[in-house]
Design a protein around this nucleic acid. Structure first.
Lengths: 341, 341
DNA sequence: TTGTACGCGTTATCAG
DNA sequence: CTGATAACGCGTACAA
């Protein structure tokens, strides 16, 4: 049936060598005569020898596998992050095991279990939207399993993480709108327990303050799940105001596009009547009419940096001592939804 | 440092039992007295015992891990497929290891190696766009490693696979356009060595034939990578014809949207001047103006079905004998790009 | 430079 | 019903 794969001992037998010798010859570890090394490699090639990583993992207590937990993978963002992460991990000889939490806290907890069962050497995670605490990571922490968070982390938590400078993103987006002469700038915010939304909001306020534009509470709409519908509902609420806004900085592209649709339905023009800036540079944001100005988050870099940090923790076994935070700089992509040509 | 995890022998020692007894008690395998079973489970709980899957895998020659190779994960389609796949796999006690081929044949070959190294029990794959042969799956086949393909397979190949009835999709899309009174219906096709594009094209021809509308070669545009640009270029080519089309059935949503953009730029109206139908139900297809009529492919079902098939092959160890093919029924989603309201 | 021996944690087999 | 033992494939002290 299944043709047995050649093992290290098969080639040892064939060559009348000890398995240990073969092992060393292959891994190039100890001092081995060039002659035998040649012989071993040659036969290995010939037998199409593939090392059994499971056995090695068992022996070394290391699986060379990394776990990644994402809320979802259907947006541009996480997909690209994953791409960057995979690239770095594979290059370092690590495999990646992906789990989706589907934006659900309970599912996320299950994922952690799953990955620990799979004996991963470390976990990279971006929190589900409804995750408010770290309790489900406690067992991992007790086992001293390296943990790195990215993008979405709990506000004020002491963990290693890679994030984009969301405040700066919000700041630049808002400044851009101010530079267009807008003064009644509204904001769509997300759940404030997540750093990303809190910081984007902070950047918005900072820009207003610097420009001497007072913050108007009525212009701030907090959304629950940052969906298209949230955006549509938000804009309706804003248009009902005695003095509606002339611009919106949205913490997400989906809500921005939802608003865009609703505005068009009402016969209002973008950007003439209301200018729009989103956040995230989703694929579709360059497909809308007009194309959406948004903030790019260096997705691939983020994934790569996060994995590098994780690998570093794994190799130095020094994770809990000093949580490190890496901050990337976002980039404003000016497009038609916010600028008259 | 790292607090040692409790192993099966720890609990054996504590309870003065043989490891084998404990093993059986935990896995509920053989006949074990209810008394000892209780004691074992209780202590296991107490010590927070977590089975070492690596060791089990080594012993059993089975990792309980499945590999999945996807061209990319930034579209709606593969993301949803993955979701369905994960759900089924996890329920069956299997983990999923994801690799992206980035639409590249060479990368795909590497992925196969990677997954075989990781000792996966089976591989699920959707081919990269520039993959024209199966040679890189040969080693896997020799090892008798269960292989299931989905969505994109090589035309005419004898492999187990789960696909959507693409011909039917193309057929229904085209019939829908015919029902709107369109007669000069163009087609954007993809690389014809991939079943999906070939079949969609076939469905298009079938519908035309049934309606007694002659197929015009000049209305068929074959695209290379199904990008937005391909769509824009395609529509330009079509508009240069002496008799331009009044509708387009595109084999992909991206090309359809590219065409949509280009049409709007030319000042042509959709659907009044040119009606448009895409394929794939990408997220953004409901965000365009007008919203794009398209074909939904039962993504989650597809992923689930594919994994079920793979598991079946793994359990019955009967993969090569009878390649099975599962065909799902696609669904036409009528939206504004093809219908006057 | 090479060989010997043992252990990683489980499970299958064979006795008892 | 339970115990002892070998084996999965590899890595590493220790000895030669």
């Amino acid at each position: 049936m299944t043709p047995k794969r050649a093992s290290i001992s098969d080639i040892a037998k064939e060559l009348k060598l000890a398995v240990s010798t073969v092992s060393r010859a292959l891994s190039g570890h100890s001092r081995i005569s060039e002659a035998t090394r040649q012989r071993v490699w040659q036969l290995a090639e010939q037998l199409d020898y593939q090392p059994n990583h499971l056995a090695a993992a068992l022996r070394k207590g290391r699986s060379n596998t990394l776990g990644v937990i994402l809320p979802n993978i259907d947006g541009h963002f996480f997909a690209l992050v994953m791409k960057g992460a995979e690239a770095v991990a594979n290059q370092a000889g690590f495999n990646v095991m992906l789990c989706q939490s589907n934006e659900d806290h309970a599912h996320e907890a299950k994922n952690v279990e799953t990955l620990m069962n799979a004996q991963v050497d470390g976990i990279l995670v971006s929190l589900a939207r409804n995750t408010h605490d770290f309790q489900h990571f406690e067992k991992a922490r007790q086992r001293n399993l390296p943990l790195v968070f990215f993008d979405r982390i709990l506000d004020g938590s002491e963990v290693s993480a890679v994030v984009v400078d969301d405040q700066r993103g919000g700041y630049e987006a808002t400044r851009h709108l101010l530079a267009q002469g807008r003064r009644r700038i509204a904001h769509f915010g997300g759940p404030q327990h997540l750093n990303i939304f809190k910081d984007r909001y902070a950047g918005y306020r900072q820009a207003l303050e610097e420009a001497g534009v007072p913050l108007e509470e009525e212009l701030v709409v907090l959304c629950h799940d940052m969906s298209l519908e949230d955006g549509a509902a938000g804009i309706r609420q804003l248009l009902d105001l005695p003095q509606p806004p002339d611009a919106i900085f949205s913490s997400g592209d989906f809500t921005a596009v939802g608003a865009l649709d609703a505005l068009k339905e009402k016969g209002l023009r973008v950007p003439q009547d209301v200018a729009l800036v989103g956040f995230g540079n989703e694929t579709f944001s360059s497909l809308t009419e007009p194309k959406l100005t948004t903030i790019d988050q260096r997705c691939e870099e983020m994934g790569g940096a996060a994995i590098r940090l994780l690998l570093e923790m794994i190799q130095h076994d020094t994770q809990t001592r000093t949580p490190r935070k890496i901050v990337l700089r976002p980039e404003l992509l000016k497009r038609a939804s916010s600028e008259l040509v």
